[in-house]
């Protein structure tokens, strides 16, 4: 469900597939393990290959945002497909988190 790259204290997590309640728990665990392992200054979540996302995706992002900012870090979102952007807009995530 994910792959990653680390460069200059920036962790990029590439998420793949459908993000719903069923898949989000595994994704959450794996992402948090990477954050713990690399202690990045910035984590970027890349949604380019996400084919479906519901409110579980909002909770996933908010949880990672809290985790990163609690340690003084930054969370960014990038390459949102239109369906994902629509869902995140409903929760107004853009007011809290930088989306590129």
């Amino acid at each position: 469900m994910l792959s990653y790259s680390v460069d200059d204290d920036i962790l990029t997590v590439f998420i793949k597939g459908e993000l719903d309640h069923h898949t989000s728990s595994g994704l959450r665990e794996e992402t948090d393990k990477l954050i713990d392992r690399f202690s990045p200054i910035k984590t970027i979540l890349d949604f380019k290959n996400v084919t479906f996302c519901d409110s579980s995706g909002i909770a996933f992002v908010l949880g990672r945002y809290k985790r990163m900012t609690a340690g003084g870090g930054i969370l960014e979102l990038t390459r949102l497909p239109r369906q994902v952007a629509t869902i995140f807009d409903l929760a107004n995530l853009g007011s809290l988190i930088r989306i590129t």
Binding site: S55, S56, A59, F60, L62, I87, A91
Partner: peptide, 10 residues
């Protein structure tokens, strides 16, 4: 905390 409470809104 892994729920957003956005289901009905969506």
């Amino acid at each position: 905390e892994d729920r957003a409470g956005m289901g009905f809104t969506i």
